[in-house]
Simulated scan of single mutants.
Amino acid sequence: MGKTGSSLLAKLVLILSFAVVALGSNTVTNLKAFYLVQQWLGSYCNQAGTKCCYPEWGKPSPDFTIDGLWPYSGDGNFAYNCGDDNYDVGRIKFMQDELRKSWPSFTCPQIGRKFWVHEWNKHGTCTKSVLGEIPYFEAALNLKKQANIYQALAKAGITPGNKFYSLKDIKRALARSIGFHPWVRCNHNAQGHSQIWQVTFCADKSGKHLIECPYIPSGRNDCASHIQLPPYY
């Protein structure tokens, strides 16, 4: 091979090397836990400037519903967007009724299955070495049953409405009922009141059993000392 050919080959190898690094930069190389994020859609929908729509199959019963299942790696990062995937939504049709109940979206116009596709493409593709397309959704649904936030709060007398509750009481109620400490995030309604929005519990590397979260991102203590659990949308 001549010098020109050798030079072109070297450049090609270098380009491919960079491509491999780029594609692999977000993969989970040291999976440590899964973070199951649940949200109260009442708090999402009552923010200033936010419009929500009920799903075409009707308004779900009040509940904390799945926002996502995030893989967390030992280097302190949440992997995401780990490459394109040929997502076949038809493969999870058999669990569609349960997904509609436990993993709905109130976005307008209603995006339905696109929400599940988005979550798989953003987070699920990073778990393919541990959970495939179907096990990923099954894991999220099973973990939600283990972390029944709405039920845990109701047992402690914390119910939707305009009343303010102590953030400490909310965390204590969740920890006592579910057995693990939650990561609670808040947002603000149109009146500027702090309200519970997301609650996260963690699972082990298999995605089957709840564990204590190994890491809580800094700068996420965005709740006031007393917060609301607003009416469901």
Rank of each mutant, 00 (worst) to 15 (best):
G2N: 15
L8C: 13
L9D: 04
L9S: 09
A10M: 11
A10D: 07
L14F: 07
I15E: 00
S17L: 13
F18H: 10
A19T: 11
A19L: 13
V21H: 01
L23P: 01
G24R: 07
S25G: 02
S25P: 00
T27K: 10
V28L: 11
N30D: 14
K32E: 15
K32H: 10
F34L: 03
Y35K: 13
Q38E: 15
Q38L: 09
Q39I: 00
Y44D: 05
Y44N: 09
C45H: 01
C45P: 00
N46H: 07
A48R: 13
A48T: 11
A48G: 03
C53A: 15
E56F: 08
E56G: 04
W57R: 03
G58N: 09
K59V: 05
S61R: 09
D63K: 13
T65H: 12
D67A: 13
D67Q: 13
L69T: 02
W70Y: 15
P71Y: 08
G74W: 02
N77M: 10
N77T: 12
F78G: 03
Y80N: 14
Y80P: 01
N81D: 15
G83M: 10
D84V: 05
Y87C: 12
V89E: 11
I92A: 03
Q96L: 04
E98I: 02
P104L: 04
P104Q: 03
S105Y: 08
S105W: 07
S105T: 15
T107Q: 13
C108H: 03
Q110H: 12
F115N: 08
F115G: 01
W116M: 10
H118I: 01
N121K: 12
H123S: 05
T127G: 00
T127W: 01
K128P: 00
K128I: 13
S129Q: 11
V130L: 07
V130I: 09
V130S: 14
G132R: 05
G132Q: 06
G132P: 06
E133H: 01
P135I: 03
Y136I: 00
Y136K: 11
F137Y: 15
E138L: 02
A139H: 10
N142M: 02
K144Y: 00
K145P: 04
Q146C: 01
Q146N: 07
N148P: 00
N148I: 00
I149A: 10
I158N: 06
I158R: 08
T159S: 13
P160R: 03
G161P: 02
G161S: 15
G161N: 10
G161K: 05
F164L: 07
Y165P: 14
Y165I: 11
K168D: 14
K168F: 05
I170D: 02
K171P: 06
K171A: 13
A173F: 04
G179Q: 03
H181A: 08
W183N: 11
R185L: 07
C186S: 07
N187D: 14
N189L: 14
N189T: 01
S194W: 06
Q195N: 08
W197T: 01
V199C: 03
V199H: 05
T200E: 12
T200A: 13
C202I: 11
C202F: 10
K208C: 05
E212R: 09
Y215E: 11
S218V: 12
S218H: 08
S218K: 15
N221W: 00
Q228K: 14
L229D: 06
P230I: 02
P231Q: 10
Y233K: 06
